[in-house]
């Protein structure tokens, strides 16, 4: 098994889920209704837990401790897609981003249950159960707000147009795409994107929302290569503010 290809793939997933989990946790205490505070916090806990599990797999492959990798790297060493690092903005953007991201994550983890890398396949079977609820949450809100009032529909439409170029960046291919597919570690970003498109079309088709014409959209790429927006480094600085004050200390 090409270990470099595998590690690259695991880092990408771990960083996605760490960063989106961090963003989702920012809703704690700020949600439009208490139930949403609680829901976003639950999903954030799952996501941070998933990233810990992935960093633990990487540690078993010889990488540094999970805390060190998560809290001590700089932005250019992170491989998350840019969609996950964008600020939460208003609830409409957060829920649309959550829907686009979670749909892809649910499918990705589902595909990972067939991975030839057995520890990942095992983990994916467990995570799949958590993702089912994230996905249900996202679809419910998109369907409800996407067909309710003029304001909710237009807000979601605007956010959908804003998020879509970044969402396409989820599927930015790695330099090891061929190896991953050939060695059955992962079926590949192309395949994932096809499944994702039909999944989001199915949900959005039940609403008043219109999917922007993908042919006219320039995907925002770079995240998978460590080229990020201006929003990631401040997020990481905040995340490691305490951790970095006393190198080597236990908290």
């Amino acid at each position: 098994m090409n270990e470099q290809a595998l590690k690259e793939f695991l880092y990408k997933m771990a960083d996605d889920t760490l960063i989106i989990g961090h963003r989702n946790s920012e809703w704690t205490g700020m949600g439009p209704i208490l139930e949403e505070d609680i829901a976003f916090s639950s999903m954030a806990q799952d996501q941070i837990g998933q990233s810990l599990a992935l960093f633990t797999l990487l540690h078993q492959l010889g990488e540094q401790e999970p805390d060190t990798v998560a809290f001590m790297r700089n932005a250019n060493q992170f491989h998350n897609c840019i969609l996950t690092e964008l600020p939460n903005q208003e609830y409409d953007f957060s829920i649309v981003r959550h829907f686009l991201y979670t749909t892809s994550a649910t499918l990705r983890w589902d595909m990972c249950t067939h991975s030839s890398y057995e520890p990942l396949a095992q983990l994916a079977k467990k995570v799949k159960g958590e993702l089912r609820y994230h996905s249900l949450h996202a679809r419910t809100w998109i369907q409800q707000l996407g067909s309710a009032t003029e304001e909710s529909i237009s807000r979601l439409q605007r956010s959908l147009e804003l998020a879509m170029p970044y969402a396409l960046g989820i599927f930015e291919e790695s330099p090891f795409e061929k190896e991953l597919v050939a060695q059955h570690i992962f079926e590949g970003e192309k395949r994932l994107m096809e499944k994702w498109l039909s999944a989001i079309e199915e949900v959005l088709g039940k609403t008043q929302l219109v999917i922007p014409d993908l042919k006219l959209i320039q995907p925002v790429l770079g995240g998978r290569k460590g080229q990020h927006s201006e929003h990631l480094q401040p997020l990481l600085d905040e995340m490691s503010e305490v951790f970095r004050t006393e190198p080597g200390a236990e908290w």
Binding site: G31, P32, I33, Y91, L145, A148, T149, E151, S152
Partner: peptide, 8 residues
């Protein structure tokens, strides 16, 4: 900020 959600 959450008013529109509750109204929807």
């Amino acid at each position: 900020r959450g008013r529109w959600v509750r109204e929807a």
